[in-house]
């Protein structure tokens, strides 16, 4: 069955997905808000950059992140200058990579929800003398709640399912970067199919339940 190394990987995966999702909600919400409302020429390019991880192979992202966060890369130079050292092979390196990698899965549902609200509720709030920030938190965010829930679930689940990027920049270190998907790969490669089944089967069940919950939820909303 599951041994302590497997359990450590499961715990680490949950920690990574939770941290990433919280950060993404904080970073993604303003981006989604801006994308939903701007008429700027920059909307296209910014939206495209956010969506890049959907179409790029994770190996491309992982490879460039490894170079960028390395001692000769721009991010690596910055983190060394800032005194936090290099990010590859660290938990926070994985967090940074995951934030980028799962970004579209959080930004797009929230953006869609904001777009669906339209101008009128916010104009109404403004006529009631709500300041823009007040209108955002007491009108826009509650109305966009389904979008936030979808974003949270997808962001979390997508980070749990991350593999290629972690493989490229993780270094497979117990309790720091050895997440479930990498451990499954190890078990399979080492021909420990029994061990692999426990984790892989668990992932299938987890993913199915998450998506089931999501569809049940969104189905109820639209009806």
């Amino acid at each position: 069955m599951l041994n302590p190394a497997d359990l450590a990987a499961i715990w680490l995966t949950c920690k990574l997905a939770t941290t990433t999702t919280v950060l993404l909600l904080l970073i993604g919400t303003p981006i989604a808000w801006w994308l939903a409302r701007t008429r700027s020429w920059w909307k296209g390019p910014v939206g495209a950059v956010v969506a890049l991880p959907i179409v790029l192979p994770p190996t491309v992202l992982g490879f460039y992140l490894l170079l960028l966060m390395g001692p000769d890369g721009a991010v690596g130079r910055f983190t060394e200058w800032a005194g936090v050292g290099l990010l590859p092979f660290t938990f926070w390196g994985l967090v940074l990579a995951s934030v980028f990698y799962s970004m579209p899965f959080v930004v797009q549902p929230i953006q869609n929800a904001f777009e669906a609200i339209g101008e009128r509720p916010l104009e109404a709030a403004a006529t009631l003398r709500a300041a823009p920030l007040d209108a955002f938190f007491s009108v826009a965010v509650p109305l966009a709640r389904p979008g936030f829930i979808t974003a949270t679930i997808l962001g979390f689940a997508h980070t749990v399912g991350e593999f290629g990027v972690v493989l490229m920049i993780g270094g497979n270190i117990p309790d720091k970067t050895r997440v479930v998907s990498v451990l499954i790969y190890d078990h399979v490669e080492a021909l420990e199919y029994g061990q692999a089944h426990w984790l892989a089967g668990g992932m299938v069940a987890f993913s199915f339940l998450v998506l089931l919950a999501l569809y049940a939820f969104t189905g109820r909303k639209t009806r």
């Binding site: 490894l66 390395g70 001692p71 493989l167 920049i169 270094g171 497979n172 270190i173 490669e189």
Partner: peptide
Amino acid sequence: RFVQAENIAQAYQFIATGNA
């Protein structure tokens, strides 16, 4: 201080990029 690669091609990559 180990960083584990899945194979030696990846170990080479970790070192060649200066990360290890």
